[in-house]
């Protein structure tokens, strides 16, 4: 992806620190901090957070913020109450104070919560780069792969969803805030998720392929594969994980070295000195085209 151009914030030089009110019950808003932190406050003002009253102190420790402001004014160099060094269990309650609703309602107890992922590991209030969701990275995928490194490699596979092209993102399928569903899926099951885009496979069909109906990932690797159609193994060996009887299953069909005698489809009972068509190209799918289910009255073997 292309680099993100720097935020276009016109910064006016601060003439002098502004001292905010010292009393705890005194109103405290973004303008108190803006005098020194023009860039970050201006950017925040363009967000939902900029509309929140008591803005800065809502997230930053109010007392420390006041002390910091006064300290700066007095030349004491009192540190800013940054969240950068805080732990997840301290940061997240701050965010969930407002956001524990809707999709974030089941964050507590979810896998990311259990792994002590902080909201600020992914989101930034002041220097976000994404169009949506104020992410630290330019999009959801770049954010996720900072931790999910195996998936980063798998997304580079030849057979892949259009994730690295930016037409999909991790959050197309996963909800990183929802701890209620396995794998944080955006649906009640793997198949229901896949049917959102691959709706033609929902059926029900006149003839069903039971493992297909149960779990698409029995055969497909949605993060990417070197095998066609994101399959987890190459046909016919994928099919032979389960189907070890019937035609085309004998080992005699499994050597594709050119010149070796194999058993192509029977024609006059003569073996041909060539590769087996049952191994080539789409293999089993060459004939069993409706492997996800057939609604053809003659589709009991998924060839129609």
């Amino acid at each position: 992806t292309q680099a993100v151009p720097p935020p276009r914030v016109v910064v006016e030089k601060v003439q002098a620190p502004v001292v905010v009110g010292a009393a705890d019950n005194e109103r405290f808003d973004a303008t108190d901090c803006k005098a020194c932190h023009e860039a970050v406050v201006t950017k925040m003002e363009h967000t939902k957070h900029g509309s929140v009253e008591q803005s800065c102190a809502t997230c930053h420790d109010r007392a420390k913020a006041i002390a910091h402001s006064k300290g700066q004014a007095d030349g004491l160099g009192t540190l800013m109450p940054s969240l950068k060094t805080a732990k997840a269990k301290d940061i997240n309650p701050t965010c969930l104070g407002c956001h524990e609703k809707d999709r974030q309602a089941s964050w507590v107890g979810g896998m990311h919560d259990r792994k002590q992922v902080a909201c600020t590991n992914c989101h930034s209030m002041h220097s976000f780069k994404s169009v949506k969701a104020q992410l630290k990275m330019v999009n959801d995928t770049e954010t996720c792969v900072t931790c999910h490194k195996a998936e980063r490699a798998q997304l580079l596979r030849t057979s892949h969803h259009p994730v690295r092209e930016g037409k999909m993102g991790c959050s197309t399928c996963h909800d990183p805030h929802d701890g209620s569903r396995p794998k944080m899926l955006q649906a009640e099951s793997v198949n229901e998720l896949c049917y959102k885009c691959h709706t033609e496979k929902r059926g029900p069909f006149l003839y069903e392929h039971a493992p297909v109906r149960e779990d698409c990932t029995s055969c497909h690797a949605p993060h990417g594969s070197n095998h066609e159609r994101m399959l987890i193994a190459k046909p016919p060996f994928l099919c032979q994980r389960c189907h070890y009887s019937g035609h085309g299953i004998t080992g005699d069909l499994s050597n594709t070295v050119a010149g070796a005698p194999t058993a192509p489809p029977p024609v006059g009972g003569v073996n041909q000195t060539t590769r087996s068509s049952r191994e080539q190209e789409r293999s089993c799918k060459q004939c069993h085209i409706a492997i996800h289910g057939s609604n053809h009255p003659s589709g009991n073997f998924f060839v129609r």
């Binding site: 292309q2 151009p5 509309s51 930016g166």
Partner: peptide, 14 residues
């Protein structure tokens, strides 16, 4: 790849 526009906020509700 489309250049990311200047990051913009999520819609404000207030």
């Amino acid at each position: 790849a489309p250049p990311s526009p200047t990051p913009v906020p999520t819609p404000a509700t207030e």
